[in-house]
Simulated assay, not measured.
Amino acid sequence: MALRDKIILEEICDNDINGLFTCYSNHEATDILRESIKMKEEKTGVKYVAKIKDALDTVGFITLKRYNSTHSRAEIDF
Rank of each mutant, 00 (worst) to 15 (best):
Val46Glu: 06
Val46Lys: 09
Val46Gly: 01
Val46Asp: 03
Val46Tyr: 03
Lys47Ala: 11
Lys47His: 15
Lys47Glu: 08
Lys47Arg: 14
Lys47Ser: 12
Lys47Thr: 08
Lys47Gly: 01
Tyr48Arg: 09
Tyr48Met: 07
Tyr48Lys: 02
Tyr48Gln: 13
Tyr48Pro: 00
Val49Asp: 00
Val49Asn: 01
Val49Leu: 03
Val49Cys: 01
Ala50His: 11
Ala50Met: 15
Ala50Gly: 13
Ala50Asp: 12
Ala50Tyr: 09
Ala50Asn: 03
Ala50Ile: 10
Ala50Lys: 15
Lys51Leu: 11
Lys51Thr: 01
Ile52Ser: 06
Ile52Glu: 13
Ile52Arg: 10
Ile52Met: 08
Ile52Lys: 10
Lys53Ile: 09
Lys53Asn: 15
Lys53Tyr: 01
Lys53Ser: 13
Lys53His: 06
Lys53Met: 11
Asp54Arg: 06
Asp54Leu: 08
Asp54Lys: 14
Asp54Glu: 15
Asp54Tyr: 01
Ala55Arg: 04
Ala55Lys: 10
Leu56Pro: 02
Leu56Ser: 08
Leu56Gln: 13
Leu56Lys: 15
Leu56Ala: 09
Leu56Tyr: 07
Asp57Ala: 08
Asp57Trp: 12
Thr58Tyr: 07
Thr58Trp: 09
Thr58Gln: 08
Thr58Gly: 05
Val59Cys: 13
Val59Leu: 07
Val59Ile: 14
Val59Asn: 02
Val59Lys: 11
Gly60Asp: 02
Phe61Ala: 03
Phe61Trp: 14
Phe61Lys: 09
Phe61Glu: 05
Phe61Arg: 05
Phe61Pro: 01
Phe61His: 15
Ile62Trp: 13
Ile62Met: 10
Ile62Glu: 03
Ile62Gln: 02
Thr63Trp: 13
Leu64Trp: 12
Leu64Ala: 07
Leu64Val: 08
Lys65Val: 09
Lys65Pro: 00
Lys65Trp: 12
Arg66Lys: 13
Arg66Val: 01
Arg66Met: 05
Tyr67His: 04
Tyr67Cys: 06
Tyr67Trp: 02
Tyr67Thr: 11
Asn68Leu: 02
Asn68His: 06
Asn68Gly: 00
Asn68Phe: 06
Asn68Cys: 10
Ser69His: 11
Ser69Glu: 14
Ser69Met: 12
Ser69Asn: 12
Thr70Leu: 12
Thr70Glu: 12
Thr70Asn: 10
Thr70Ile: 04
Thr70Ala: 06
Thr70His: 06
Thr70Trp: 05
His71Tyr: 13
His71Val: 04
His71Thr: 04
His71Gly: 01
His71Gln: 06
His71Glu: 10
Ser72Pro: 00
Ser72Asn: 03
Ser72Arg: 12
Arg73Tyr: 03
Arg73Leu: 03
Arg73Asp: 02
Arg73Phe: 05
Arg73Pro: 00
Arg73Gln: 10
Arg73Trp: 02
Ala74Glu: 00
Ala74Phe: 05
Ala74Lys: 02
Ala74Ile: 03
Glu75Cys: 13
Ile76Gly: 04
Ile76Cys: 08
Asp77Lys: 09
Asp77Ala: 15
Phe78Asn: 11
Phe78Pro: 00
Phe78Trp: 06
Phe78Leu: 10
Phe78His: 05
Phe78Tyr: 15
Phe78Ser: 09
